[in-house]
Design a protein around this nucleic acid. Structure first.
Lengths: 162, 162
DNA sequence: GGATTTCCCATGAATTCCCATAGATTCCCA
DNA sequence: TGGGAATCTATGGGAATTCATGGGAAATCC
């Protein structure tokens, strides 16, 4: 799997009273170059207290991988169960949300809670996917490198000052 | 087999006194993009105490899958029997129900019993198909990952609070 | 004819759509 | 190359639509 277009960069956007957030234009352009969906898939990040996001095509790719794995071990009952569980996590525990003509999504309440997102959303490109953080949570996270926290601080300043 | 449109997301809907349930709009849209039937096929899930559901087109696909599996082991008499059994389950033990203009099905009493569905139905997308659970049964099921149970709890809360 | 089943309408909440704006960025052309 | 115009981006607010759900009328069945 060699993805041609990668997510990179960072931005800090507001979540408004209705729960709407603008997806940064530089991330949207990657989504639209990968497919033509104007839609993102949201999931709780498996390790960090934040959200993981990607385009629907990437989700399908992940699914195809799981399928192939299953067919190899079709007769193994343990493999069956693990397949069921992973499939549930990959699809039931995620939400697909379209963004409108102005590039905004409505952050689903469940994801907002799971990702601890308040009224500011920090977007971080990570190549194949991107992450959405509560900037406070990122600064409090010991496993995050200081250089990255500096970026978060900068984005906060930038916004606080203007 | 590469299905283009996958079932994704979760929702908790009420089963009313007449046995009617709304199929969540985001699942309906997948059904209608896969074919043009406004119909779902219900079956008892093969492993979990819940229902498995999909569009009529997928049933045909499943049949082809079984056929292919049989041909691989044509000489094995055990495989023949298993094929017969799985084929029976896939077709005799299912019910096809249309949904009306408001997106509701009438849950067939037999399926309701088999799936242990009470007056709340939890819908979980799993890619090629989706599942319908009694939320209580899901919380009691040891083979279900905790993160998924959290989602069920969230959906219950969301509904209880409002 | 009583009971079930199907259809149709009603409704409140949620969500999508549309328009507006202000600031930043890019473009363009003299 | 400099400055001004056009465009794009993030954001706000309100209107219009969709969604889930309840209730009842009409049709159907033994």
């Amino acid at each position: 799997m060699a993805l041609e277009h990668l997510f990179q960069g960072s931005a800090l956007n507001a979540v408004d009273a209705k729960g709407r957030v603008s997806i940064p234009a530089f991330l949207r352009s990657v989504i639209e170059r990968r497919g033509d969906s104007r839609t993102i898939v949201l999931a709780k990040h498996e390790a960090f207290p934040c959200l993981s996001a990607y385009d629907p095509g990437y989700a399908a790719l992940k699914h195809a991988k799981l399928e192939r794995l299953l067919e190899k071990e079709e007769t193994n009952p343990d493999a069956q169960l693990e397949y069921q569980q992973r499939n549930l996590m990959a699809f039931a525990a995620t939400e697909e949300v379209p963004y409108d003509s102005s590039g905004r999504i409505l952050m689903p309440p469940m994801m907002r809670r799971k990702g601890e997102i308040g009224d500011l959303a920090l977007f971080l490109g990570t190549g194949e996917t991107f992450q959405i953080w509560n900037p406070k949570a990122l600064l409090d996270e010991p496993r995050i490198p200081d250089d990255l926290k500096d970026i978060a601080r900068f984005r906060l300043e930038e916004r606080g000052a203007s």
